[in-house]
Simulated assay, not measured.
Amino acid sequence: MTRPAQLLDRRARRRRETIEEILEVAVEVMTEDGVAALSLAEVARRMGLRPPSLYQYFPSKAAIYNALFAQGARRVAAAAVEAEAAELDGADPLARLRTFQDGFCRWCIENPVLTQLLFWRTVPGFEPSPESFAPAVAHLEELRSRLRAAVAAGQLAPQAASEEAVALFTCLVSGVVAQQFANEPDASYEQGRFTRLVPTVFDMFIARYAPKEHTS
């Protein structure tokens, strides 16, 4: 005999699985039709559901965008940290920062739909909730902490941890990703004409904020 708690767990698991499936299908639709062209009717059709059934899980299209934003923010942050963890020379803050950012850029190129939702205003009027935006804020703080570590190690000048430097760093990185999508959207991260410049962009940032004793 199935106990009430087991029944609730089973229902909760099925609900989580259905939510994940809805989000996966939504990304499929957005990949084919455009990020701003998400259709709940099309998502329901592909899942074999009646459109009103989706409202049991998401009350609106904006709610799906919001859930995808949170999912993307978590995943890109995790990809950056995982890439950094693979860096053998863990004592070198700049080497760790380089792999941290490389993991970020690679994830962006491999996940174009979520990247557009995260970093470009592709959906008119959409604003993520504070809860969904929180992982993005945390990721930016991770970047700041790594810049501060490089400063503490004497590899970068103190200005490298300033808000201006953080803004410049993100502009350089996002510019590479945007150029790749605009010009070679189907190229791999390794073969992309612009993504191949990620190490060069990183070196430019280092040169801009090199310690004074290293600039002569």
Rank of each mutant, 00 (worst) to 15 (best):
105 C>W: 00
173 V>N: 02
137 V>Q: 13
44 A>M: 03
134 A>K: 13
200 T>I: 10
160 A>W: 03
214 H>K: 14
139 H>C: 05
176 V>I: 15
90 G>E: 09
75 R>E: 13
108 C>N: 08
35 V>G: 04
55 Y>D: 05
21 E>D: 14
201 V>P: 07
175 G>F: 09
133 F>G: 03
69 F>L: 11
146 R>A: 00
55 Y>W: 06
172 L>I: 11
149 A>I: 06
83 A>G: 08
39 S>L: 07
84 E>I: 01
35 V>F: 02
68 L>W: 00
202 F>N: 06
154 G>C: 06
88 L>M: 14
191 Q>I: 01
47 M>L: 15
202 F>I: 06
140 L>V: 10
33 D>M: 10
4 P>K: 00
49 L>F: 15
56 Q>S: 15
107 W>A: 04
88 L>E: 14
204 M>D: 11
11 R>N: 15
146 R>N: 05
155 Q>E: 12
12 A>W: 12
184 E>D: 12
118 L>M: 06
58 F>G: 03
14 R>K: 15
19 I>R: 15
15 R>P: 03
125 G>P: 13
80 A>C: 06
7 L>Y: 04
44 A>R: 01
174 S>L: 14
54 L>I: 11
213 E>V: 10
45 R>L: 08
161 A>W: 04
47 M>C: 03
155 Q>R: 11
147 L>W: 01
25 V>Y: 08
106 R>H: 11
155 Q>D: 12
108 C>L: 09
194 F>A: 04
167 A>F: 09
111 N>M: 02
21 E>S: 12
124 P>Y: 03
201 V>F: 12
98 R>H: 14
11 R>W: 08
160 A>M: 07
106 R>Q: 13
116 Q>H: 11
163 E>R: 09
104 F>A: 01
114 L>K: 04
198 V>W: 01
174 S>F: 13
104 F>V: 02
128 P>G: 01
